[in-house]
Design a protein around this nucleic acid. Sequence first.
RNA 1: GCGGAAGUAGCUCAGUUGGUUAGAGCGUCGCCCUGUCACGGCGAAGGUCGCGGGUUCGAGCCCCGUCUUUCGCGCCA
Length: 595
Amino acid sequence: MLMTHAYRTHTCGQLRNTDAETTIRISGWVHRVRDHGGVLFFDLRDHYGITQVVADPASSAFKAAEGLRSEWVVRIDGKVRIRPAGTENKDMPTGLIEVYATDIEVLGPAAELPLPIFGEPDYPEDIRLKYRFLDLRRETLHKNIMTRTKVVSHLRNKMNDIGFNEFSTPILTASSPEGARDFLVPSRIHAGKFFALPQAPQQYKQLLMVAGFDKYFQIAPCFRDEDPRADRLPGEFYQLDLEMSFVTQDDLFATMQPVIMELFDTFKGNKTVRPEVPRIPHSEAIRRFGSDKPDLRNPIEMQAVTEHFAGSGFKVFAGMIAADPKVEVWAIPAPKGGSRAFCDRMNSWAQGQGQPGLGYVFWRDGEEGAAGPIAKNIGPERTESVRKQLGLNVGDACFFVAGRPEKFYRFAGDARTLVGKELNLTNENEFAFAWIIDFPFYEWSDEDKKVDFAHNPFSMPQGGMKALQEQDPLTIKAFQYDMVCNGFEIASGSIRNHSPETMVKAFEIAGVTKAEVEERFGGMYRAFQFGAPPHGGMAFGVDRLVMLIVGASNLREITLFPMNQQAQDLLMGAPSDPSPKQLRELHIRLNLPEA
RNA sequence: GCGGAAGUAGCUCAGUUGGUUAGAGCGUCGCCCUGUCACGGCGAAGGUCGCGGGUUCGAGCCCCGUCUUUCGCGCCA
């Protein structure tokens, strides 16, 4: 047969027993060599799959095959043949055949590997990041990246299908009002001035609405110079950013909920997607779940049980309640957690968290009343009232935290998460969503001793100008919402404040003058003077969506070339020193800290 | 900026109470092996125990400092 291509007639995932006896050419990486002396096997791998190649002393390729090592790139000419009976590999799509090599050309030999491609043990991040191109060859990461690509493509197609228009907004822009630290880019032409990379295309997309484009979306890169977390990449990340005109909050939910549900339905694998997506007010989420991004797979819901402790024999709580009317006692029910061992384990965990402890009661079989120190202190009647309120039974336990809710709700939420996990109440094979709505517009800043925006300053306060003028700012809610899934915030958005007067008033309450608003958000402030439509939108964290879908616990598992925690790219060596010429052109002199 | 964990062969790790020559697996190199698919067997090379200082007769191990990686806090509209 005349070879029609320099490198391949088939991919490494393509050949089947119907190809038997054909002469083929394949190229790829040597995955694994098994040299038996007289007969030699190796697996050839490319993006599409793995094919076993075999050579024996009768083959003209035998000598070359003996020299092959892992990860060399080679071109193989050979003949497809059915594997001898009993040597088939049913775990491989190509496992019924093998390629008998007649010619081998080494296209790219490989030095000794700093990390193996075959098998996937954990490796230190610095090695993985420095040799990212090798890490990306490994099966799991390679698959994750492909899933990411398919997710992005799915979202883009879907958004186009439902009438959204994709626009690219500028990357070199002005420093924006979001809370994060900006990445700055010096301007050569304007000495001493800097561009900022966008933290989000927030102002641009709102300007697009003012410009009449109605439905905007973008898979947008966003840049924030903040320290990372496992679920927060350093430097840059991607959002599915969207904005709509003439819509209410309900319209946005009705538009995007099906998109997200269909996405997860498409990529869920053998997990299930809970069809109900409840809308939970922010304050209720805090009280029921101890979090503004509750994991609804965990069935535990907390309740206030303050009145059962007020004036009770449990002096610690009773004293706190008497001393401060804002103090509450919350109960964290633990169904089937009714054992001393479990309760003590939770108690030591709490102490490890810097808490004095975690009070509990539990109900045992064949025992009158309840066990645990708190039960004895508050007495059987109050204990029974607690049990009834929470609907608990023999075999169950309940934990208690007391104080001002804003101080302890996080800890209570963590305890709820741990109880759910320890007692296997949380179904790990499910995706459970919720909309968290009615976020507070303002919050009290202890640091600055003033009222500050709780989240997005461009949100519309519920009640509008009237609320800003008449209400206690700390009680004002915003038309602002998050979508959460399994304890992660996957989207955040709001109905925007499109009235310049209301905007000025909103900033005034946060201590920002009209002049400052005009200076810092001049483009948008000006735009709102000339016919701004009511509009709103949201942004989904693409990285987090993919992380949830593939079940990764770290964003580096779904990102092509991530930076390390110090925001360095170890592969490319970024950031790097500028040349003296570059600095001269930019009129920049370095003022480095003392070594 | 702060706190926790880790750092021993190219890679993953073990290394007891401080004790004589620091080990294993994978990989690499050499030899043997005709049906493996984590092939197998024999052998070899490979180490500034992150770095610096200290305690000690003696330190991979204890102490102090420092660097690197990571997880968390701060921060993240």
